[in-house]
Design a protein around this nucleic acid. Structure first.
Lengths: 404, 404
DNA sequence: CACGTTTGTTCTCTCTTGCAACAAAAGGGC
DNA sequence: GCCCTTTTGTTGCAAGAGAGAACAAACGTG
């Protein structure tokens, strides 16, 4: 039935707009969607009956004419669980429509020490805490998504490879499903891809159709938005540019190849240049570097300049390849951006062609360290957003199931 | 009016299917589109009334049941003009639905000697010949598209930069419009992008959702299909990977930077390694190289191996970046593929990650040297294919306008 | 030649949106 | 404070498109 598809599309269009742009008046929705007043009224009626949105009277706006009611998402209507498995930490959050965060927590973990089984157990424990603390008037649970620092097959959530976690061919989505025991679908994606999604949905450059997110955690990766959609490629492996060749005369990389971008511009290169040793918890080292940079420590500033140079060469290539409107630097590069900027931009200018360069805006992430977690929440919400009527199946049954 | 959009979408879906997959029975169309029998009948009726398709009785297929009529595009219903401005030649073709080629011609031109004005005049002259030789029962003219070897802004067909043609900021679409004097819309695009479109629509891997086309003409560029759509980026400059950094210790490139991919793996590198001089018409030199390779000339084979190596390093990076299902080698690399293959694949394997590598199929273009021209024809046909009803406006007026 | 099978044809129904007329609610001018 | 204009919600009706059911047509099979 094609009529149903049309209806679904229009419902999704209204709900997504409210989710992303916050509350809007009915008349704003009318002009945004280019639908008729009466159709908008009907659509809002349905979304309202589903419990997803609510209307409030609408302020008098110093202009003539009948004031239009303000429509907004009802934040406590649905909830998703967002998970981030980073190298140095695990983070979880329960999030609702409009990006409303019920609760969030992050715990540090010594690097590279945890098996998939231990990790999943830890996640389940933390998830239990978060879900129990949801409001008593419980929202309905519609999805789970996890951002993992590794190469992830999207179709079934298999972590093909994560050198930094020490994982290989881990069926992470299935393991989560088993331990969490929730009825909701579970998606697993790459950390940088989720960072890009967060920037596209909620970042400074939200809505830009072509965006590159450069993730500097332990590894160096990118998440890329093309035509307003995440670049996944055939299986979801796209954006693995950390092992792009940038210096054939460079060092051997853990991946087996030589002169990878990550080897020249990644965290390890920074520490090497600064003459520092990696500890079990990388965050402390990074903080001490930032501190010393602030104090004008020459060695540290030179080290940062050094990786900024190689980073910029790669960013220039990305600009030539993708012709993006925005390049957002995340993770490590977000933290040190003020010190990196000049060498980074010099290197970018040395490589990027004039035409794409004059379009691209380069800057640090404003979402900060939580980008991947926010992106995971957005991914988990995609189901409701693209088919709002689907919650009616859920609401007839229970609310939040227990995580034990 | 949303109903119209739905109708347009369904008409487009049927016509595109016929255009790409050739003739189909009505029942095949029914199962392909998942629409109702009666709806398909209605849609075909409308397309038929527009003169775009025709039905023939339908063969008895040795299976029980009433035979389904075969629907096919009527090739002489519409025509587009496809233009290719390459470095060594100009090509034009008049093409109809189903990829039907009315006529095609290509003339060689000494390299880098022609101004935009001379080029446009030449195109107009040749276009006149082609249009005059169209069938007496004239098809209706719906579009023009040109593939140009350079960086092209899609929105207005401005050629921002073409080092190999020696052009800079040439308003090529406007110039064509003026000289051709046709009412039809004129699109200008990058040559490699058009090669990719051709491979996606009519190549060996047609229909694959993620594809990389590597164009080796004089420069080295790529056209990339992501999610079944051309990767253009914000302004259409995407895919300019020829000047990606691949060897910081390498030579200076014309672009001003050092160690670009093109400098190591492009045509100039091949000639340099083979100890040959470039002549005005690059095609002869290329043919003599191919000839000597066939005769097991050691120097030439070594030269080809050399660029194959650097080519493969870049292709490996593209596989990591895009996770494509197919990588199609065009132009120069298509011509010499049999000699390139082993060093190319070795280098690819040295760089590409295991996960994306096991998905990607690498091979030479089967469409050969005409890829960009075919792609331009497909681009010009996009208008009719996405809104078949739009031809009714045209058919009420004249058929082919004169090009003089 | 009767039967089952597949598919075109026709008519009706449903769903969704658009449109027009009317009502409601605001500001502005007198 | 009243009337006018403007903007927008509300209601009932019309139009367009596709779905579904019943029937007819055209095929192979025994």
């Amino acid at each position: 039935m094609a009529a149903e598809e049309l209806r679904r599309h229009n419902l999704a269009s209204v709900l997504s707009r409210l989710h992303l742009a916050g509350s809007s008046s009915r008349s704003q929705l009318t002009s945004f969607t280019e639908l008729n007043r009466s159709t908008i009224a009907d659509l809002i009626g349905e979304l309202s009956a589903l419990g997803l949105v609510e209307e409030r009277p609408g302020s008098s706006s110093s202009r003539p004419g009948r004031p239009s009611p303000i429509v907004a998402t009802r934040p406590e209507s649905v909830a998703v669980l967002a998970i981030e498995i980073a190298v140095d930490s695990i983070a979880l959050a329960t999030v609702g429509l409009g990006g409303h965060i019920y609760n969030k927590l992050r715990i540090a973990r010594p690097r590279g020490r945890f098996s998939p089984e231990e990790t999943v157990q830890e996640v389940a424990k933390l998830a239990g805490t978060l879900l129990d603390s949801l409001p008593t008037h419980r929202p309905y649970f519609v999805g789970v998504a996890a951002a993992v620092a590794g190469v992830v097959r999207r179709s079934d959530g298999l972590v093909r490879l994560s050198p930094n976690l020490g994982w290989r061919d881990v069926p992470f989505a299935n393991m989560l499903a088993e331990v969490l025991g929730l009825g909701a679908p579970i998606l697993v994606a790459n950390e940088a891809d989720m960072g890009a999604l967060a920037e596209y949905r909620r970042g400074e450059h939200a809505g830009v159709q072509h965006l590159v997110y450069v993730s500097g955690e332990v590894g160096l990766g990118t998440g890329i938005i093309v035509n307003g959609k995440g670049l996944g490629g055939a299986a979801g492996y796209a954006g693995e540019v950390g092992h792009t060749l940038i210096n054939p005369e460079g060092r051997a990389c853990r991946c087996g190849a030589v002169g990878c971008w990550e080897t020249e511009a990644g965290e390890a290169a920074l520490l090497r240049r600064a003459g520092l040793q990696m500890t079990e918890t990388g965050t402390e080292v990074l903080e001490s570097i930032a501190q010393r940079a602030l104090e004008d420590d020459r060695d540290v500033l030179a080290a940062i300049d050094g990786i900024g140079h190689w980073l910029g060469l790669g960013v220039g290539d990305l600009i030539n390849t993708f012709n993006p409107e925005a390049v957002v630097m995340g993770g490590l590069y977000h933290r040190l951006y003020e010190f990196l900027e000049s060498s980074l931009l010099d290197a970018v200018r040395s490589r990027a062609l004039e035409a794409p360069l004059e379009i691209a805006v380069i800057g640090p992430s404003e979402l900060g360290a939580d980008s991947p977690l926010i992106g995971a929440a957005e991914l988990a919400l995609t189901g409701v957003l693209s088919d709002p009527a689907s919650v009616s199946d859920v609401t007839t049954s229970q609310g939040i199931p227990s995580a034990h």
